[in-house]
């Protein structure tokens, strides 16, 4: 039989001695090691970006100094001012926005519809199409840049932003299809079935239930597409030539080749500005992804 006197014995005992994990030498060594490694990794990986930002605030004299100064002795916004006043940076920026938004919108509209079909139906040829999609995404750009260049010239679209939007879609669409398919897959089919029993047609169920739930997915797909089109360089290099129609990567690339004319300060300042939208978008998605809206619906499955 177990005893019933536990309550009484506890009172008489001395207060318990607390055990600290940190009193263990192995524990301390392993923690220290972790932090040391993490610090090293972050320093090495993060340094180029840190250096880019820091140097973009240095005056020209410091940028060409040898040995280089670490932190700017004199902080200046001159590089940024020059960028906007002396170069066509604003035009490039605007062009890049047009191309990236255009390609994203196009692939979102076309791809959203297609991905729904890929996710929900099993008719002949549909799973085959999924594979083809992934295959397209991995196709080398250099393979199709030649024929696309020929079409662009023949249709008189050379040196237009429109040609870039369309060409970028060749890669952002497979990406959108593939990703959105998996987002739709994650939304329980029973929700749509329930909507259909509640009186919706298939398309109403898709619009009223599936699409609202897929919003976090749509947002992140947009960011991926945007990022892809924002970075794209080869099509821009081949299709466009005039200053008026240059996008950022191409514009900056031309300056790199002429670093005697364009100062490093201006180049680094433009690099900082090109990175900004990408970072802003990334932060936006990160927040959306955490929400996990379908969590409540499928619990207990």
């Amino acid at each position: 039989m177990t005893s019933y006197d536990t309550a009484a014995t506890v009172i008489d005992r001395a207060p318990p001695r607390r055990n600290y994990e940190a009193a263990d030498i192995h524990f301390i060594a392993s923690r220290a090691m972790t932090y040391l490694l993490a610090l090293t990794a972050c320093t090495v990986v993060g340094f180029p970006l840190f250096w880019m930002v820091i140097c973009s605030f240095k005056p020209a004299t410091e940028l060409y100094m040898s040995p280089p100064t670490f932190l700017p002795q004199q902080w200046t916004l001159q590089n940024y001012r020059d960028l906007f006043l002396q170069t066509r940076f604003p035009t490039y920026f605007l062009n890049s926005l047009i191309v990236a938004f255009g390609a994203t919108l196009l692939s979102l509209l076309v791809g959203g519809l297609g991905a729904y079909s890929l996710s929900r139906f099993r008719f002949f040829g549909i799973s085959g199409f999924s594979t083809v999609t992934l295959f397209c995404y991995m196709l080398p750009e250099v393979l199709i840049v030649i024929p696309l260049y020929i079409y662009v010239v023949q249709f008189g679209l050379a040196d237009t932003l429109f040609s870039l939007i369309v060409a970028n879609t060749a890669f952002t669409l497979p990406l959108a299809l593939w990703f959105m398919r998996s987002y739709f897959n994650a939304i329980p089919v029973t929700l749509e079935e329930s909507a259909m029993i509640d009186g919706c047609t298939r398309l109403q169920a898709m619009w009223k239930v599936t699409v609202p739930l897929a919003v976090p997915g749509l947002v992140s797909v947009s960011v991926f597409s945007f990022n892809h089109a924002w970075n794209e360089f080869l099509f821009a290099l081949v299709f466009t030539s005039s200053e008026r129609n240059k996008v950022l990567p191409l514009g900056l690339a031309t300056w790199i080749g002429q670093d005697n004319i364009y100062s490093w300060g201006m180049l680094l300042a433009s690099a900082v500005l090109v990175t900004l939208p990408v970072l802003v978008f990334y932060l936006a998605v990160q927040k959306r992804l955490v929400v996990g809206m379908t969590e409540g619906a499928s619990k207990g499955e």
């Binding site: 029973t190 329930s194 909507a195 239930v209 619906a297």
Partner: peptide, 11 residues
């Protein structure tokens, strides 16, 4: 119809 997982619209 009442579904096994209730199929309530989470949004």
């Amino acid at each position: 119809m009442v579904f096994q997982n209730y199929a309530l619209y989470p949004h």
